[in-house]
Design a protein around this nucleic acid. Structure first.
Lengths: 226, 226
DNA sequence: TAGATTGTTAATCGATTAACAATC
DNA sequence: TAGATTGTTAATCGATTAACAATC
């Protein structure tokens, strides 16, 4: 019902719902209740309804939500209904790996360029996507109106590359380098920090190793069946 | 001061502090205050102190914290002081990209094996790390006591591969496939969900495009200088 | 109609921040 | 000593959950 700021946590879940709804749509499911949707994602039904209420009133009492309609409403609100160009900075193993792996899942996002410093790579193209020198960034990015970038350069080049992206007009960066970027607050940065994630996982192994719990074996399942 | 459960959000920040302390240590800095450490990461000094109090009392009033000592305390608590073997499932672009990119940053983690289904790849090795067939997973993983894995296989193979990992004894999975894994609650899963992160970023672009804010240019910086 | 399920308000829970005495 | 900075308790803020009237 509200119209303004959607909290970040809610945005994340809305995108999760949209993906799940896409899956349901493929399966030919027509309606879904908040309970059912929540169960698939390990989220309480009441929270699902609260999240969805940010979009307006799309539910039908006694029935649930129309899968396709709800999905489109969320995607519209999230801006996932319009195509978006994307550049990847760093055409090394990681950058190319990401580009190739996600080619299929990118949905409305499309990789339009790689950037790299390596003269060997510059001028080549990968699956039809050209690799440009860093110096061309402003030209290409500004020229095409690209606003999203993936940053996959070595740690010590990340800050500089990020600044160049911002100068060229990028407003959202998905950063793979294990470093906190210092950028203007108008630029949104998401961190894909694998080292940190691994350390976080390790803590929970460590914790369980230390707790003297009776070593029973795995029985229940975390979430309901998909 | 406490000894038990550290909330997940706190664990994340502790690992962030540890990394920042490593950087300070390299710079030759001997002590740091909660204010200074917080400023570098965009976290309030009072929250830094509260987080650190989970470890015990390591600070020195009027002085701050000894960088090296604090770093080691955190790393010990987080289990980052002992080496840990890691396998990567999926020796495609993404899997190899991650393996190669992180070789340098992995700290106490060491990639000991790749797994893949492609007969072309099986038997080869990459930077000295062998690529095994999926059938060998149980043998290798259980044999080496590996507890952490990175999952970088195509979406539709992710659930099966994850189950195999769990059977082989893995207890923590960093999942790159854009899908919610259904696993026993004893297994910890971290999601590196790039598609979702891009969608989240896109929402904020969308939001700002919609809000009719006066288009002033970038002035301030998000965080203090590093 | 009766059963199912929504949308929303109030209650609860957890995380962050403010305040400040303790003390190096 | 005076200034700096900690560790902790109390206050605030935000997010989740419970409850339930509205209604398809």
């Amino acid at each position: 019902m509200k119209n303004k700021e959607i909290p970040e946590l809610v945005v994340r879940r809305l995108n999760l719902y949209a993906r799940c709804l896409g899956y349901l749509e493929e399966m030919g499911v027509l309606t879904v209740s908040s309970k059912e949707l929540g169960d698939r994602l390990g989220i309480a039904d009441t929270l699902v309804r609260k999240d969805l209420s940010y979009l307006g009133e799309f539910g039908h009492r006694g029935v649930g939500y129309y899968v396709s309609q709800l999905r489109h409403s969320i995607r519209k609100m999230m801006g996932a209904d319009k195509p978006r160009a994307l550049v990847i900075v760093g055409a090394g193993n990681l950058g190319l790996g990401i580009g190739k792996y996600h080619q299929h899942f990118l949905d409305n996002h499309r990789v339009v360029a790689y950037f790299d410093t390596d003269p060997e790579k510059i001028g080549q193209s990968v699956e039809g996507i050209p690799i440009y020198p860093m110096e061309k960034m402003e030209e290409i990015v500004a020229g095409m109106g690209v606003e999203l970038a993936v940053l996959a350069v070595p740690k010590d080049q990340a800050q500089r590359a990020a600044e160049k992206l911002v100068l060229a007009g990028v407003r959202g960066i998905l950063n793979f380098a294990p470093i906190a970027l210092q950028l203007p607050p108008t630029v949104r940065v998401a961190y894909a920090d694998l080292t940190l994630e691994l350390q976080n996982l390790a803590y929970f192994l460590e914790k369980e190793a230390n707790s003297t719990s009776p070593a029973g074996f795995v029985i229940s399942r975390r979430r309901k069946e998909e």
